[in-house]
Simulated assay, not measured.
Amino acid sequence: MVPHFTQASLRTEPFPHAPVPGILTPALADRVLAWLRDEAPWKLRVESFYQQHEICLEEAALPPSLSCLSSNEFISAAEDGLARLFGETHGLVLANASAHRLSGGQTIKIHNDFIGDEESHRLLIQVNAGWKLEHGGLLMLFAGSDPSDLRDVYIPVHGSGFAFEISECSHHAVSSTVAGERFTLVYTFRRGSSRGQK
Rank of each mutant, 00 (worst) to 15 (best):
I110N: 10
I110F: 08
H111P: 09
H111Y: 12
N112F: 09
F114S: 00
F114L: 02
F114C: 04
I115D: 07
G116A: 09
G116W: 12
G116K: 08
D117A: 15
S120F: 00
H121G: 01
R122V: 13
L123Y: 00
L124G: 08
L124P: 09
L124V: 10
I125M: 05
I125C: 03
I125Q: 03
Q126H: 07
V127W: 01
V127I: 04
N128E: 04
N128Q: 06
A129G: 10
A129M: 10
G130A: 06
G130D: 00
W131G: 01
W131P: 00
W131T: 05
L133F: 11
L133G: 10
E134A: 11
E134M: 11
E134D: 11
H135S: 11
H135Y: 10
H135K: 09
G136K: 14
G136T: 15
L138K: 05
L138S: 06
L139M: 14
L139P: 11
L141F: 13
L141E: 03
F142Q: 10
F142R: 10
F142L: 13
F142S: 09
A143Y: 01
G144S: 10
S145C: 11
S145E: 12
D146V: 11
D146G: 04
P147N: 14
P147L: 15
P147Q: 15
P147R: 14
L150F: 14
L150D: 12
R151G: 00
D152F: 14
V153M: 09
V153F: 08
V153R: 04
Y154E: 12
Y154L: 06
Y154R: 03
I155A: 14
P156A: 13
V157A: 00
V157T: 08
H158W: 06
H158L: 01
G159E: 04
G159A: 08
G159S: 02
S160T: 11
S160K: 07
S160C: 14
G161V: 01
G161I: 02
F162G: 14
F162W: 15
A163G: 01
A163P: 04
A163H: 08
A163F: 08
F164N: 02
F164D: 02
E165H: 07
E165L: 09
I166N: 03
I166H: 02
S167K: 10
S167V: 14
S167Q: 07
E168C: 13
E168Y: 14
E168D: 15
C169G: 08
S170D: 10
S170Q: 10
H172K: 11
A173V: 01
V174N: 07
S176H: 13
S176L: 13
S176I: 12
S176Y: 12
T177Y: 02
V178T: 02
E181T: 00
E181G: 02
E181Y: 01
R182K: 05
F183R: 01
F183C: 00
F183G: 01
F183P: 02
T184N: 05
L185A: 04
L185D: 08
V186C: 09
